[in-house]
């Protein structure tokens, strides 16, 4: 088709369009993410004795770190759905936040006395189950963000999928905190890290094709 006739047709078919709003996108994702929490409690997966658990020292670290990472990365992911936004610099700040959260956890975990104690503390059958559940809980926000990304116009097909992955993984892990019976920082760093890493890797590998336009 010639350019002139293309322009002619586009102008003829023109309909008023409502500008995309950041806060509408953010509210949709917040709703999808927030629905996971009551669902978790409704299906009876949440740990009993939640009030006591909330006073555990690692609980504040887990909820604070994961909540902050999910919030910041979700914000950046949605901003990156607009063509003029560059996530390059903000992504460095996000990396710094993640590094601080992990470092804090490592300080809490302390240095293990022996290899045997590490193996004991990691409790790998439960750990694999934890990582798997984190991946499952990350799926709804991942799909929500990916669909919004597809309807937007992200121009950075490396960083946008990564940000979607980080946001979804952090939220999945945040929700999973209420289902997790373990509070050993070493266990959390390793298995939560594995679950989040899988989600981020999947997002980085699969989403560029999906959000491309």
């Amino acid at each position: 088709m010639k350019l002139d006739s293309l322009i002619e047709r586009l102008a003829e078919d023109l309909a008023p369009v409502r500008p995309r709003r950041f806060w509408v996108d953010a509210s949709i994702i917040a709703l999808i993410a927030a629905l996971e929490l009551p669902l978790l409690f409704a299906v009876g997966n949440a740990q009993p004795g939640m009030r006591r658990m909330l006073t555990e020292p690692t609980m504040g670290w887990r909820l604070g770190s994961l909540g902050l990472i999910a919030l910041v990365s979700g914000f950046l992911a949605i901003r990156s759905f607009y063509p003029t936004y560059s996530a390059q610099r903000p992504l460095r700040w996000l990396t710094l936040i993640i590094a601080i959260c992990v470092a804090y956890g490592m300080v809490m975990a302390g240095s293990p006395a022996s290899v045997a104690s590490v193996i004991h503390r990691l409790n790998w059958p439960s750990g694999v189950d934890c990582a798997f559940k984190i991946v499952l809980l990350s799926i709804p926000p991942l799909i929500g963000l990916a669909v919004l990304g597809r309807s937007g116009a992200p121009t950075d097909l490396r960083r946008t999928p990564l940000l979607i992955g980080v946001a979804a993984a952090a939220w999945g892990a945040f929700v999973f905190v209420f289902d997790c019976p373990f509070d050993d920082p070493l266990y959390i760093l390793v298995w939560y890290g594995l679950g989040c890493g899988i989600v981020m890797l999947l997002a980085r590998l699969l989403l560029p094709r999906f959000v491309r336009w």
């Binding site: 322009i7 586009l10 759905f81 063509p83 003029t84 937007g152 116009a153 121009t155 336009w213």
Partner: peptide, 24 residues
Amino acid sequence: ILAVHLKRGTYDRALPFTPWAYAV
């Protein structure tokens, strides 16, 4: 031109147009 048409909803009226078109 087609992308500008399909993604015109992502243009923020309060901002300059040229950077948006350039990004596309």
